[in-house]
């Protein structure tokens, strides 16, 4: 098994999931609580990666961060080298690609929070930010954990976007799924099978954990609120 690829994949997935918590929570908060009419525009943009072929998404990201785009030039002037085919470029693409897997569970959990509770907090003099951390996050914890783990698991298995934006550079951008593809191309089915099984077991274990945690949280709530 290619442990370098496995290590790289886990590093990528962990960073992606962590950054998505930081980036996704404010987006989800806005989506859930904003009264704006054009909210659906943002909602559908966030959901795009769910339906777009990864190659299409990857292509646009590649163009957007490439040396000919303003964003790409800005990054190059800042760091000294272009973003595509680096780990950072891959991370950026992963974040966009897994955005709905984090934002949608977050927003769904926020939608479930009784607005009266939030108003009650405000009338008690607690500002919006503190209300978010003291009340909304604890009440949405199951959704936050789900979003974190789903975006982690989703990043573990990404292929098309990685290939487009990251390429296939050993130790930099070669992830597990690319490694499996390479093994199959080289007719090394035994190697591919081992890695594939490893990814399957890990993904299943991760999902098992999520559902177990979610169940326990819900049961706990049910126990507390008999209504």
């Amino acid at each position: 098994m290619n442990w370098t690829a496995i290590g790289l994949t886990f590093k990528l997935a962990t960073l992606t999931a962590l950054i998505l918590v930081v980036v996704g929570l404010p987006i989800a908060y806005w989506l859930s609580f904003s009264q704006r009419r054009w909210k659906f525009l943002v909602e559908s943009v966030v959901a795009l990666p769910l339906v777009l072929p990864p190659t299409v998404l990857g292509f646009y990201i590649l163009v957007a961060i490439g040396p000919h785009s303003p964003l790409g030039r800005f990054y190059t002037s800042l760091v000294g080298h272009p973003l595509p085919f680096t780990f950072e470029g891959l991370l950026f693409a992963s974040i966009l690609y897994s955005l709905p897997f984090a934002v949608q569970p977050f927003a769904a959990a926020f939608d479930q929070v009784d607005r009266r509770l939030i108003e009650a907090s405000w009338t008690l003099g607690v500002c919006r930010v503190k209300t978010f951390f003291k009340l909304i996050i604890p009440l949405s914890l199951a959704g936050v954990v789900t979003g974190f783990v789903l975006s982690f698991a989703h990043t573990l298995g990404e292929f098309g976007v990685v290939l487009m934006v990251g390429g296939n550079i050993e130790g930099v951008t070669r992830t597990v799924s690319i490694d499996i593809y390479d093994e199959v191309q080289a007719l090394n089915y035994a190697g591919a099978a081992k890695t594939a099984l490893f990814l399957l077991v890990i993904s299943y274990a991760v999902l098992l954990t999520v559902y177990a945690i979610n169940r326990r949280v819900w049961e706990g709530r049910r126990g507390l609120l008999p209504l």
Partner: peptide, 27 residues
Amino acid sequence: QRRCLGYMFQDYALFPNYSVAGNVAFG
């Protein structure tokens, strides 16, 4: 937040994840 008032909701809107003392101490 800046009106310094006490508001009691018809359905109470107690925070389910806080104890009685936690609810009272919330603000």
